[in-house]
């Protein structure tokens, strides 16, 4: 990845974060923490990796993404709008009655959403089914899924992982958003998610650790996943919850936060200043 390409993705990520903050502020509150932590990943996938046709969201042989941590829908909507799946103005209807953008992903309502999620642990199983189906169809299509580290406390995640490993679903790439926090507290204070890499390897996956906020590192990991032909890959992403929404960074209660328009404006201004300094 050259400097221009990195710069392009960085600008897309900054734009996405701004849209996302405004999107949640337009409703007044929302799942900001886990949405902000996966923005860079989503930008990378949708602008550089996935084989998709935004003008034809139901194209059968597309790559698909299941956002198993379905409460982070607002982040995905901010990216889908930028990709042209729907008009950006819809972002301000988030969670309003009659909206096509509910905070938890709904494949029946939102163009570009490949599976409904919200009951944690289920999306990764659906992703296993999708990857299995793509292979059965003989398509070259791939399936991506994003699970939370807190979500990984769900037993069903491991049922899905053992099946995908047993079936050697090499067209399945998972990401664990290892931001170290869940709704109530830091993950370490509840049920720690230790040795994830070893766990996945034991279940027959390739496991790669990467910095979830660094595009060259994301590229390295995702390319390695793409080139792994004998098993699924889990990329364990070291991320920061609320990354880019500065009022939520480094605090415990950043899972879902009230965000006024004034707070949003200041947060966006502060984010631009920080990015400029970088």
């Amino acid at each position: 990845m050259n400097k221009q390409e990195i710069q392009f993705l960085k600008e897309k990520a900054l734009d996405t974060r701004v849209r996302l903050i405004k999107e949640i502020a337009s409703f007044g509150q929302g799942h900001i923490g886990g949405s902000m932590s996966i923005v860079d990943l989503l930008v990378y996938l949708y602008f550089r990796e996935m084989n998709i046709r935004p003008e034809n969201p139901q194209w059968a042989e597309r790559d698909r993404l299941v956002l198993s941590k379905g409460h982070s829908g607002p982040a995905l909507y901010a990216v889908l709008a930028e990709k042209g799946y729907f008009d950006e103005s819809l972002l301000s209807t988030l969670n309003q009655g009659g909206t096509t953008l509910p905070s938890h992903c709904d494949m029946l309502k939102t163009p570009g959403i490949d599976y409904t999620a919200g009951s944690l642990g289920q999306g990764i199983s659906a992703a296993v089914g999708i990857a299995l189906g793509q292979r059965l169809k003989g398509w070259k299509a791939r399936t991506f899924t994003i699970v939370g580290d807190g979500e990984s406390q769900e037993g069903q995640v491991w049922e899905a992982v053992e099946a995908a490993g047993a079936w050697k679903l090499s067209n399945l790439t998972g990401f664990t958003d290892l931001n170290g926090q869940q709704l109530d507290d830091y993950t370490d204070a509840i049920i720690p998610m230790k040795q994830l890499k070893e766990r996945y390897e034991t279940f027959g996956w390739k496991a790669i650790e990467a910095n979830g906020h660094d595009f060259p590192d994301l590229e390295r990991a995702i390319e390695e996943a793409r080139n792994t032909e004998d098993r699924p890959t889990m990329i364990i992403l070291h991320t920061k919850k609320s990354y880019g929404f500065i009022p939520g960074e480094g605090i415990k209660s950043n899972h879902s936060m009230p965000i006024s328009m004034e707070t949003a404006d200041k947060a966006i201004k502060d984010l631009f200043e920080r990015e400029r300094d970088v």
Partner: peptide
Amino acid sequence: FFNCGIAEANMACIAGGLSSVGF
């Protein structure tokens, strides 16, 4: 045919995923 093992909840969602790609 897929034997999903003793993991019924996983089987149900795998079926949902298969359905979404036309099975």
